Amino acid sequence: MAGVKQPDPARRSERSRQAILQAARELVSEVGYAKVSVEAIAARAGVGKQTIYRWWRSKGAVVFDSFLALSESDQGVTLPDTGDIEADLKTVMRATVAEFADPAFEAPIRALNLEIVADPELAAQYREKLAGPVDEAKKARLRSAQQAGQLAPDADLDLALELLYAPLYQRWLLRSGPLTPQYADALVDLALKALRP
């Protein structure tokens, strides 16, 4: 018996976890959040429903983690810093616009927003695990621009982020216009008019 290799439960668990996250993303994209159930996620992932409930308390929590997994990085969140705040912000905003326009990201993001509105605990997790770290990285880049004299030294960086991102979010949320690189550039140009020294 000493030569018989036992299965590694940690590896099996991680494989199941990844299958569940992928199944949740696929189902949200295919049928929409409202029609997704924990049972459907379990069936697609090839696991029992109890396996999902062992790790997540609700469908919304699974969808959140499936979205978070798309954004995970071993190095954390950093923004480009070429020394030119306008060029760097345009790069970031164009990437954000492209992400929001990509159906693979768009469906889970919409689903996540629906859950956050109805679930304060999930909203707190979202702020802690995703929005907070991303906002801190953005503010670090803006702070660097302030130190270089490219932004007003007294500019409120939280408000600066709202100035940049709120119009994009509203356009996406209400589907009120196209999300294009030109739109991203226009947001940066307008925000920098308000933020420059």
Rank of each mutant, 00 (worst) to 15 (best):
L157R: 11
A191R: 02
R141Y: 03
I85D: 13
Y169E: 14
F105L: 10
E14T: 12
T78P: 00
A19G: 11
D74V: 03
T51I: 09
D102N: 15
A184K: 06
S144T: 14
A140W: 01
V62C: 04
S73P: 04
P133V: 04
Y53A: 01
E128L: 11
R17H: 13
L79V: 03
A23Q: 12
L27H: 03
K49R: 15
R11N: 04
A45C: 08
G32I: 05
L27K: 01
S13N: 12
R94Q: 08
E26M: 00
L68A: 15
A34Q: 14
V92I: 13
L173M: 03
A107E: 11
R175A: 14
L190T: 13
L68G: 05
V36G: 10
D156M: 03
L68E: 10
D119W: 10
V134T: 15
V134N: 12
R54N: 09
E72R: 15
G60E: 01
A118G: 08
D8I: 15
L130I: 08
P108G: 01
D119C: 08
G46S: 02
S66D: 02
L114Q: 14
R94Y: 01
M93K: 07
A140Y: 01
F67Q: 00
R127I: 05
A24G: 07
E14D: 09
A40L: 09
A124P: 00
W56M: 01
A137G: 15
L27F: 01
R17P: 01
L159P: 01
P181N: 01
G3Q: 02
